[in-house]
């Protein structure tokens, strides 16, 4: 297995300060490794990959990876990525966002990027909380869970990212977890090789902010919790409806093969140029 760590070290920027700033045991590091392995599995050159990240813990990932990277403003990672993809359709664009970044501040951009079906892969690292800014509840904090701003429990319902993206028209929607790294690798490798808007939600534990308010004393307990509360989609769909609420399905939910916006744009351009001559 020694090739795994060696491979990741090849894709890191060694002029940055390591170890990285993420908390000990943070799942973002595992997701970062998964992105590196999936890009490598596609066989893409580093120069052909653009990583766009927003603000938050997930934003730091773009800093450490040795691709063309943009660290953008809060919630606007998808808008920057749309511009990059339309200007340079040959580039492979990967957008890394947190749950607050993608669904609260940039929620509008997410649904419209999915509607436009722009050809990029959006990776949403969902840790159920605003980790970097001090543990405020986010739009994905489950009902009844505690956070810095909901000391008596969250009253609101949380977003289901998969259902949201499915309804908005994304080409590919999948969910993985940081605990199931091999499955996450498979999902990401599939997503990177597909046309149109691909969305991958990744459950990553935040024990520093979410865990300490919800009786998870260390990262290991959070990983055990993730392992206990998730199950493959195939097994989940066979469960009785009343038991389904206890588990979260993990796997590939939507696979459509519609051409991306940039492909349709190039076609239109060709057609218009042809009619002008």
């Amino acid at each position: 297995m020694s090739e795994v760590t060696q491979l990741i070290h090849q894709y890191l920027r060694h002029n940055k300060k390591f170890p990285h700033v993420l908390c000990p045991g943070c799942g973002h590091g595992i997701a970062m490794g998964s992105i590196v392995r999936s890009v490598h599995a596609q066989g893409w050159s580093k120069d052909d990959v653009v990583v766009v990240a927003g603000i938050g813990c997930s934003g730091r990932i773009a800093v450490y990876m040795d691709f063309n990277t943009v660290h953008t403003t809060h919630g606007r990672a998808l808008t920057f990525a749309t511009g990059i993809k339309m200007a340079k359709p040959e580039m492979h664009v990967i957008v890394i966002m947190g749950d607050g970044d993608a669904l609260s501040i940039g929620g509008n951009h997410l649904i419209h990027a999915a509607r436009k079906n722009i050809g990029l892969t959006a990776i949403i690292l969902n840790n159920n909380i605003y980790g970097m800014t001090g543990g405020q509840c986010s739009s994905t904090t489950p009902t009844g869970d505690f956070s810095m701003t909901t000391p008596y429990g969250q009253l609101e319902k949380s977003f289901d990212i998969v259902e949201l993206a499915r309804a908005a028209g994304a080409n590919f929607v999948a969910r993985g977890t940081a605990f199931h790294a091999q499955q996450l690798d498979r999902i990401m490798t599939t997503a990177f090789g597909r046309p149109g808007f691909n969305l991958v939600e990744v459950f990553t534990p935040c024990h520093t902010q979410y865990g300490r308010k919800n009786k998870f004393k260390n990262p290991v307990e959070m990983y055990k919790h993730i392992s206990k509360t998730t199950m493959p989609l195939e097994a989940w769909s066979k469960l009785e409806p009343e038991k389904r609420a206890e588990r979260t399905p993990v796997g590939v939910f939507v696979e459509r093969d519609e051409p991306g916006l940039e492909e349709r744009y190039m076609e239109m351009k060709k057609k218009l140029l042809g009619s002008a001559q």
Binding site: M1, T5, P19, H20, G25, H28, G29, I30, A181
Partner: peptide
């Protein structure tokens, strides 16, 4: 090796 968040193993 797959799950080390700090790539240290």
């Amino acid at each position: 090796e797959l799950h080390c968040p700090d790539f240290a193993i």
